[in-house]
Design a binder for these strands. Structure first.
Lengths: 223, 223
DNA sequence: ACCTGAACACCGTTCAAGT
DNA sequence: ACCTGAACACCGTTCAAGT
């Protein structure tokens, strides 16, 4: 077997910053932030841990790059539609990005060196609100309220320790078991009559709150 | 020197679950979640790491206990006042607790075995809303919206990579430096004309959003 | 009963080599 | 130019001792 043939059969394409960043995102998506270690990312790519440092300067630099890829996945609020539709679509898109990349929720707004997709996203959102007649103080109100809600909902949903009605039922059992019966009657009623009902999905609450906020902002804008 | 005198001079009181939990909270408050390691908490208490395992079963059990202490610090919405005042006070109190214990933001609603203070808090909030005329579906809307916003605002504020106007100015410099001038005009205007103005404090946005949400819920309740 | 020390299987990152 | 292996200073947790 010639060395030429050996090369053709080499299952490892050359490493690159792009390949490292995308492997890291895929790994964090499936295994979580705790599993996002240099050693595990290197394992995904079948290289020694230290090979990564040729392409990224350290773990924080890797996370910077991963977050900018995610900002690129958020649909930008474009020129055509009114501000309310644009902000609603952008909120739903950001919600979807955070659901796909749960590990990123606490990291999106924490970058000391935001990348181009990050800056472009914030520029587009602010521009859309400004051209709809929001003054700068009102932009600050609206952005803080919307993003507070979007990230907070994503955080709460991510951390909720159950996903299905069955899991909730099991957890409710464990939850009340150590305490006297009827010690927490309002919570018990809420859990049994609402959360444990078939078809309950916490995720569906998102749009109720989003629309309440958008309507409130509209009222403040026209006042 | 007698062994009796040695005992009197021993600077280490006996370990207890309470002492471990409170030392861990104090350490996480000052050094952050990454520094909340068994070895560092043990160091605080001047014992060997393994001494902690006599009083807690593992790191997760320690965090469970820490979170329940924090729930105990939130002012309960009591009987006297109307629901809006009660929810506003409770939101401000939770905001303050999260500001004192920033490491806890992602952990408060993630416990598979919530402690008594946790359950008592949720029971009181739900009870207050129910007795004000919210039906169960509306309680779910209100709770999800309020807590989404409160936790999300705390998360964003915690992660924002600057605290003072000076830090923001330094960061703005670094932020736009790698890109062509006027590449992000809306963001640049927002930063220079609002965020970098003397007296700017992101934290002050909290009450604007909170009141907008409470007014929206009031409208939905009376409708 | 309560605490300890060594050990195991992990981390991120530095450094000096290897090809 | 690009990747590697050993090493260092850390983790949480198990186990067998120590007092």
């Amino acid at each position: 077997m010639s060395t030429m043939a050996m090369k053709d059969e080499d299952p490892r394409p050359a490493l690159s910053r792009q390949r490292v960043v995308h492997a890291a995102i895929a790994h964090a998506d499936s295994a979580g932030l705790d599993a996002l270690t240099m050693r595990q990312v290197a394992g995904m790519l079948q290289v020694a841990p230290m090979a990564l440092y040729r392409h990224i300067s350290n773990r924080d630099d890797l996370i910077d790059a991963m977050i900018d890829v995610l900002f690129g996945e958020i649909a930008l609020p474009l020129g055509g539609t009114d501000w309310k539709t644009a902000m609603r679509d952008r909120a739903m898109s950001l919600r979807d990005v955070l659901a796909r990349h749960r590990w990123a929720i606490g990291l999106m707004e924490s970058r000391r060196r935001p990348g181009p997709a990050n800056l472009r996203h914030h520029d587009a959102v602010i521009g859309k609100l400004r051209s709809a007649g929001f003054d700068i103080a009102m932009v600050a109100h609206a952005y803080s309220l919307l993003d507070g809600y979007i990230y907070g909902f994503a955080l709460t949903k991510m951390n909720i320790p159950f996903n299905t009605t069955d899991e909730m039922a099991a957890m409710a059992q464990d939850m009340f078991e150590p305490f006297p019966a009827n010690e927490y009657p309002n919570l018990a009623e809420f859990v049994t009559d609402h959360v444990m009902k078939p078809g309950y999905d916490y995720g569906e609450e998102f749009e109720y709150g989003l629309d309440l906020i958008l309507n409130g902002l509209e009222g403040a804008l026209t006042a």
